[in-house]
Write a protein that binds this DNA or RNA. Structure first.
Lengths: 140, 140
DNA sequence: TATAATTAAATTGTATACAATCTAATTTCT
DNA sequence: AGAAATTAGATTGTATACAATTTAATTATA
């Protein structure tokens, strides 16, 4: 089956391309907050959780310490988060959101809607896409 | 609308995570071919086209010369491709597949099926996902 | 309880990504 | 034709990603 290897028959490729292209759409909005996309999804978790250790954060975001350690140091430099050793278990590094980090949430609140609207998907398509993607993530 | 910024309500995040996790599934198979995922999708285009310039390749794959230039040099080192200046327009660099590159295609032919099967999607879901992703790509 | 095994982050090394800039070749325009 | 604008790749600088290894802390076990 030769067609197996045609780019147009690959499912991962449009996922990969969509992901990158949508992230590009975030850029102008995230630039105003001085955040990259990866830093933004870290902030999203912190807007929900207030504090979390690196391991749990990585599990939520499918990222490991090799990616998170330098990224979290940058967020700390920007004063959006604090990094503190846990006193209960010194192996754990607790990431805490700062007031400055909390304030970003207000500025960020319209971003999902703004980016979402350029996708031009119907309500049904949005729901279906969402459902299938989480099905894949749960299966992997 | 506070919920706007919950991770579970973001559409881009599961796309980003799925893309990365599926690419991870390719790794053991691609390791045997001494290819990374990005190098693999370049080879997929070349298995179809035989030759193409960097600009067109970038358009197909949503990648720019900053990513492609070093990647193509690596594929040349592995003798899977050749890089030749076009004689018609010296600004163009033509990427040609080599015999060694062609031979890889045989070894790669089962990879899409093998990776596809770990997604556990129904036929309908696969088609629907494919359709929505290309709709997004065409809209962007 | 001393040692082995495990765990969480950090580090190292390689490979993307991409914006911005640069350089050289080609077109366009006057 | 010659200058200006455009185009294709390459380069530079910053920021991920992630496998593999290392380090330090904790837990399990002989």
């Amino acid at each position: 089956m030769e067609d197996n290897l045609k780019l147009s028959n690959q499912l991962c490729f449009p996922l990969y391309a969509c992901s990158k292209e949508i992230i590009r759409k975030y850029k102008p909005y995230l630039d105003k907050l001085n955040l990259t996309y990866t830093q933004y999804i870290v902030m999203i978790v912190l807007w929900e959780e207030k504090e979390i250790n690196v391991k749990s954060l990585g599990k939520r975001l499918f990222l490991d310490s090799g990616t998170l350690t330098p990224l979290l140091k940058k967020l700390e430099e920007k004063k959006y988060i604090e990094r503190v050793k846990s006193t209960f278990d010194e192996r754990n590094l607790i990431i805490k959101i700062t007031n400055k980090g909390e304030e970003l949430k207000v500025k960020a609140k319209d971003i999902p809607t703004l980016v979402g609207s350029c996708l031009n998907l119907s309500k049904d398509e949005t729901i279906e896409l969402y459902k299938i993607l989480y099905k894949i993530l749960n299966n992997l």
